[in-house]
Design a protein around this nucleic acid. Sequence first.
DNA 1: CGAAAGATGTACAGATCGGTAAACTAAAGA
DNA 2: TCTTTAGTTTACCGATCTGTACATCTTTCG
Lengths: 186, 186
Amino acid sequence: MRPNKRDELVRKALDVFYRNGFHATGMDMLVRETGVSKTSMYKHFRNKDELMLAVLRLRDENFRNWLYRRIEEISDTPQGQLLALFDAMDEWFQLPAFRGCMFIKASAEFQESSHPIYAQAAEHKRMLYDYFTGVAKRAKMKDPEGLARQLMVLKEGSIVLAMMGVNKNAAHDAKRAAASLLDIHL
Amino acid sequence: MRPNKRDELVRKALDVFYRNGFHATGMDMLVRETGVSKTSMYKHFRNKDELMLAVLRLRDENFRNWLYRRIEEISDTPQGQLLALFDAMDEWFQLPAFRGCMFIKASAEFQESSHPIYAQAAEHKRMLYDYFTGVAKRAKMKDPEGLARQLMVLKEGSIVLAMMGVNKNAAHDAKRAAASLLDIHL
DNA sequence: CGAAAGATGTACAGATCGGTAAACTAAAGA
DNA sequence: TCTTTAGTTTACCGATCTGTACATCTTTCG
């Protein structure tokens, strides 16, 4: 049981779950897609829930790392970074592989607030909120928490409208709204 | 096969799907909850997809009727109605039975854009967009379409944050943001 | 009453669900 | 070389999935 084997399984399972959803993806399918045997799969993960949680942890790490890096590449001032969020979102939405936010979908499939997957998904959003609060403070905004909450609303809303195919340019609309709100909070 | 029997089945199935999700709810469970036999169920609906589509149609009718009525009860001016949207959202979020938006969850579970359930969910959001565009026009806003798109972003974002348990008062934050945007579009 | 028509319950088909038992191979470490 | 360990295959478990065949019950109409 080499340590990187498990990581490789999580990486491949992430793709399948992201494309197919959680309930709709069976362990048999994952076994087929990863090439590993079912017994080996259950050597690495006690059950499907544990695999899904590992997938969400990896997704959280990948996504937040990408987003923070991209935001800081686009702008080197805190104010600029609060807007750069929506440029990064737009880049994400335009990817052919874009299928919405995995955490929104996870909490849509596991709605009981006691379920660990629900908790994990919420935690991801809370960490993003904390990050934006920090940036808003560095940008000398008044009420940085309130601004961060508003930016979160704009971010999640644009994701939903892009994922539902209602408005593929929702990030632009969100950015314009964010720019107005930033002026007010300056 | 009385005509109201089918409607009653759709009404009961709506509750179960809304609480439990689509893939996680089996026909056996629906048969148990509705008290009807499986054969009768399949007399009324050719398959599960047809039942889910009927459920979404009913949900669309119920939700839009409730929202439009409530918005017009809260305010009788077009400007006030654009803000009343978020008061109505907050009332919805605070209901104990609140479990998020059924259409967001539907498109999260059926992600292929060719799937009729995905299409139906997107259509619901488009009809809401058309409604807000109309109200924005009546409120003499400049760029009513752009404003309606921004309000949609705020609305969907607040739903997601409320359903994920991240911010149960997301409607307040969205309303404050909307008020600022309205000033700009006046 | 008696027959046709419609709705019902039972019981099941075939596939797939998450998960496991057991016997095997391959390779690395002492 | 011998033993431990990782990973394999195969076959299976009981439950549940969507969907159906068929016999029975109810209703309605002549």
